[in-house]
Design a binder for these strands. Sequence first.
RNA 1: GGCCUCAUCGUCUAACGGUUAGGACAGCAGGUUCUCAUCCUGCAAAUCGGGGUUCGAUUCCCCGUGGGGCUGCCA
Length: 485
Amino acid sequence: MRTRFPPSPTGFLHVGGLRTALYSWLLAKKSGDHFILRIEDTDQERSVPGAVESIVRSLAWAGLHADEGVMLESDHIVQRGSKGPYIQSERLPLYKKYADELLKSGHAYHCFCTSKRLEQMREEQMKAKKAPMYDRLCLSLPEDEVKRRIKAGEPYVLRMKIPREEVITFDDDIRGPLAFQGSVIDDQILLKSDGFPTYHLAHVVDDHLMDIDLVMRGEEWLSSLPKHLLLFQYLGWKTPRYAHVPLLLNKDKTKLSKRQGSVAVEEYIAKGYLPEALLNFLALLGWNPGTTQEIFTLEELKDQFSLERVQNAGAIFDVEKLDWFQGQWIRRLSPEEFAARIQPIVAGKFPSAKSDPGFTEKATLIQDRLTFLPEAADMLSFFYEEPDVGKDLLVSEKQKVTTELLPTILKHLTDTLDAIPGKDWSMTTIQTKLDQLLVSGSLKKGQLLWPLRVALTGKPYSPGAYETAAALGKTKTLERLRRVL
RNA sequence: GGCCUCAUCGUCUAACGGUUAGGACAGCAGGUUCUCAUCCUGCAAAUCGGGGUUCGAUUCCCCGUGGGGCUGCCA
């Protein structure tokens, strides 16, 4: 099944867009067919430079690569595939051609009405509590007048002539049977006065010419579906399947918007979310496998995803659940994978981490403790710079470590650890030796381990004392212990 | 306003017309623990309302109600 994702280059990739792209990608990949990326830049005013790059990068981060269409090759936008161009602004003659066809077959007509007139008309219609619709003033224009006005250089648009007496029905892959009364559908503009097509014409032409089997898009397009169905019919083309995906919602159930949180995939990348987590979360927002499985790899999604199990109702984007997925995925990574993901981040702050042979061992210590990747640098800082150990942190009321007791404790620690031969320095040995000390002495575990951990890390929270000492090595461990004495 | 559409715990959701209405997140209460996390156990929490159809409706139909989307020479 050939599917496509057609963003407008008006900014970054929206998380709702990412979900739609994911579902489309899944369907194409499941059937072993192509997933196409097309750029819909028919609104020149809203196009933003760099937006295409940003969108393609976000998709690449998520692992959703296009088989055809617009892609990034060594940081340059290229188009690949036999159905191109895949950028709408490069397809203008095509739209013109089919618009002319519609004109000839009587399904479209020229309209010279100014924006000002249209605005006034709408205002009056609203006042009269009627649905705002084009009043078809230009529909009855004599042919020679149309010709004359075009020749005179008067700006015009091309409108679609909607059959007002028809009822248009359709079976949506997610929604099921749908029906629309022609009498309430407006004569949609197909070609704007600047010669660019509107979405309605462009999408129909492209999806037909690009052999798209299934058009997946957000629910906000449902109302304009009949216009698209009519266009396919008038052009004599086979209508593709359509699947209208429910919307992603804010906490107050309105359409997910920037105002109420992050909507840009870029922002989630910057915050340090794993692509696996975002994708997993998005997949389950509106779709369910019918089992209690919650954690899915992209591979598993590919096997199990189906449109029949996509929800009809909109879903609130709950960041707390996303964060849970993030935690799950952080912990699910192999130690090597986890280390590889955080190493560039840590090395950004502590360059020596880049070539640290013990990096994976250190990384493992924080894998259960970290939620967002950027936290790693701070969590591992004590391995790469000498911690500033506050006396007040070394004492702890809860652990019964008093100022008076502290020197004794530190002495015990230093003596015991120093007695371990360098070649035997490991977490198990350290633990065994310190446990022996606990048994023979009168100190409680917390009284011994709290000061040790704080002396080594300088932090109120950190990985455990044994594993930190082991990872730090004997020399550094003793150095730091002696330094706080 | 008109049109389209949707409706199960706070949230994401499951349930051939027959279940004590299940799971997950969040919440709360415990447990493990040297800190923070992780992890484990438990608790609380829902079928929007009214009619119908049926022996029996969360499930099917109708009407309300509520929400959302669209109503641009935006997509």
